[in-house]
Write a protein that binds this DNA or RNA. Structure first.
Lengths: 225, 225
DNA sequence: GGCGCCCGTCCGAACGTTCGGTCGTGTACC
DNA sequence: GGTACACGACCGAACGTTCGGACGGGCGCC
């Protein structure tokens, strides 16, 4: 998209130049973005002013405009990063070939991984409401993602691997409702690794939270309430 | 709560007075709220100006202030309504007595019902980020709700009715992540009734989306990661 | 039954503040 | 001396909110 060809020709020079007078490291669009997105997630995009960002970054409003064209550009960069991660996953061979249920498992596992790896960016993406052009575009791509996953679910139902008494589109929405909720509560320190989390999500999503198989437990457990 | 005793002594009078010159019906705080919440959900609370509300209601900004004290009061009224519905459900006898797994089923089913019945209000509640006092209070009550449901889940695990290989708190979060996602896509006309939806949610949540019983597909055994 | 006042409802025009964004300048480094 | 980065001062527009007043139906009074 758009002209990006000659963007980083002078990257080494720029990196070297990136330290400033008092040894402070200058911002790059990426490092600025990281701070901005954190603020956006805390107070909401509309609820965050450029002055808030100035305070969070330690530079002034006008200095921010040296790195990015506008506030909306920050939003666009953020949701792009999130969407890139999700769509890259759909391009992986494990998501495109093989039995549908296996492809779906891959999609679920890697989605959780992407959510955790790119947590703040995906968080912001999931909160976009469509007020601006950038947000409209993000919504559109999210719908596209949803459609592609739905197709896999539908195929897995046809294969006889998934229950056929529920609409695939509805299944997809509920499944990703569960996955996406990760951004609401995940904390790297408190919650486990992304891999462990993906395991739990897989187990709950595919086998449900009811106890299976053994049924060897004593009927009453611990007295009535 | 608070003093409501003598509030509606002149209710009939007020109702009669509630029609205006050209036959137009005047706003009540409730009818105003309905319009406001719809706007909030479309553009976000911070993204909605009082002028937006004026346009949506057909009266002027200043007239809105005749009915409510502030923009934030509208938010407070909205999230209160949502929270009242959810906590009322927790007070029902079916949620307080009996086997934990049955209580949980009741909580899940009625939660879906409340979400659908009070869709715009719950939608707004779930998007609150804690910028203002009203939002902080809403977040606190949401956490309280979560804690109460978690306790039921934990008990159901102890009873041996739910799988014990997953942390109850995590289970609750994923479960309600799935349920709450309803606000992102539910449309009364397109989606089925709330009861049907609750059925689907129950089936997926408790038994998973994998096909059961028959197991007529070639094994191969998923492979671990 | 006609009159006059009250009050609920709404309005247009402002208020002071904050918004996203611009401008001209300073300064350290290559 | 050119470039990268930062600054403080500033802009017009939009923000949430306030204010004084207009309009008209319901009710007490005669």
């Amino acid at each position: 998209m758009r002209a990006r060809a000659v963007q980083r020709v002078d990257a080494p020079k720029a990196a070297a130049r990136r330290r400033r007078s008092r040894g402070r490291v200058a911002y790059t669009p990426q490092s600025l973005l990281a701070v901005a997105v954190e603020a956006f997630n805390q107070r909401g995009y509309d609820g965050t002013s450029m002055e808030d960002l100035a305070h969070a970054t330690g530079i002034t409003k006008s200095s921010i405009y040296h790195h990015v064209r506008s506030k909306e550009e920050l939003l666009r960069l953020a949701v792009s990063r999130a969407l890139d991660g999700l769509f890259a996953m759909l391009e992986q061979p494990e998501a495109r070939t093989g039995r549908a249920i296996d492809r779906l498992e891959h999609v679920v596992r890697v989605s959780v991984q992407v959510l955790v790896d790119e947590l703040p960016y995906v968080t912001l993406l999931l909160r976009v409401r469509g007020n601006t052009d950038a947000e409209q575009w993000a919504l559109q791509r999210r719908r596209e993602f949803d459609r592609e996953v739905s197709a896999i679910v539908r195929r897995a139902v046809e294969d006889g691997d998934l229950r056929d008494d529920v609409d695939p589109r509805l299944t997809t929405r509920l499944l990703f409702g569960m996955i996406n909720s990760v951004v609401e509560w995940y904390e790297p320190s408190r919650t486990g690794s992304a891999t462990d989390l993906a395991d739990v999500v897989m187990r709950l999503a595919f086998d449900g939270l009811r106890r299976h198989g053994t049924a060897a437990h004593p009927g009453e457990g611990g007295g009535a309430g």
